[in-house]
């Protein structure tokens, strides 16, 4: 479960987030939609604990940080960062490690899991996504879609409360995207929260349980996916949905 209460962030005179509050249950998938440059990625980075914010607080499960704590290199922020895993738009796999190395790096060297166990678990997930044969390859030898699956598995391997994905559709490999959807749905079904930032309404329709619409630096509205798509309350949401349907 994620609770965001009144967080704000301003860089110079530009507000990136203004008083954003939302509460979101575990075990569900949340899609965050809205035009580019409206604070979606900023929100994701704040939830991950990687980007300090100026006001408010964020709670994941039983761990929470305030605005003050978000900018300090304290024990608390390291604990908070462990609560979420992030998959960046450009993935940023570790180029010096193999597929297996990317996934098992943190379980082995942070959690202290025996290497053989970590590799066995990673391999099972790779097989499930149909890329087990690539386990000893380096990231640059993989297609974009394959790389994305490795990046997701790398984040999932640490078993975070929350999985955050930034614009995953840009790397999705259409033939295999069903596998990725299943993987994310299975992950959510085991009591985790999945937050997906995307500008593609089509990708989230029938996949995300909830949708949140971000206007300029603020949360305009949030609802169950079907309700938000069929019956948007705000004029700005309606306009955005109208445009994205034409695309």
């Amino acid at each position: 479960m994620i609770t965001i209460s009144g967080i704000g962030k301003t860089v110079g005179a530009t507000p990136l987030l203004s008083n954003v509050s939302m509460e979101f249950p575990a075990g569900k998938i949340l899609g965050v939609i809205g035009p580019s440059g409206n604070g979606k990625t900023t929100l994701l980075l704040c939830i991950s604990g990687l980007l300090p914010f100026d006001r408010g607080s964020i709670t994941i499960g039983v761990t929470s940080i305030t605005a003050e704590e978000s900018s300090l290199r304290s024990e608390k922020i390291w604990q908070f960062r462990r609560q979420s895993g992030i998959v960046f738009q450009h993935l940023h796999l570790f180029p010096h490690l193999t597929v297996l190395g990317n996934i098992t790096e943190a379980p082995v060297h942070v959690s202290g899991k025996p290497k053989a166990v970590a590799e066995k678990e990673a391999l099972a997930l790779l097989e499930k996504l149909g890329i087990g044969q690539h386990r000893n390859k380096y990231p640059e030898e993989l297609s974009g879609g394959e790389q994305q699956r490795v990046a997701i598995l790398r984040a999932i391997a640490m078993n975070p409360e929350v999985l955050l994905l930034d614009e995953p559709t840009s790397a999705l490999d259409p033939i295999r995207s069903g596998d990725v959807r299943n993987l994310l749905q299975d992950f959510a079904a085991t009591g985790h929260t999945v937050v997906i930032v995307s500008h593609s309404v089509r990708f989230l329709r029938g996949f995300a349980d909830y949708l949140a619409f971000m206007g300029k630096s603020e949360l305009i509205e949030m609802n169950r996916t079907q309700q938000l798509l069929e019956n948007p309350q705000d004029e700005r949401t309606r306009e955005f949905l109208h445009h994205s349907e034409m695309n």
């Binding site: 390291w78 010096h96 943190a106």
Partner: peptide
Amino acid sequence: VPERQWQVAYSLGMRPFKAFRRIIFPQAFR
């Protein structure tokens, strides 16, 4: 080495020293 590599390492639970030694250093060395 992109700043995002540090961020990925941090979000996987690595502290700066470990992130440097395991993730940043091998890439920079090359």
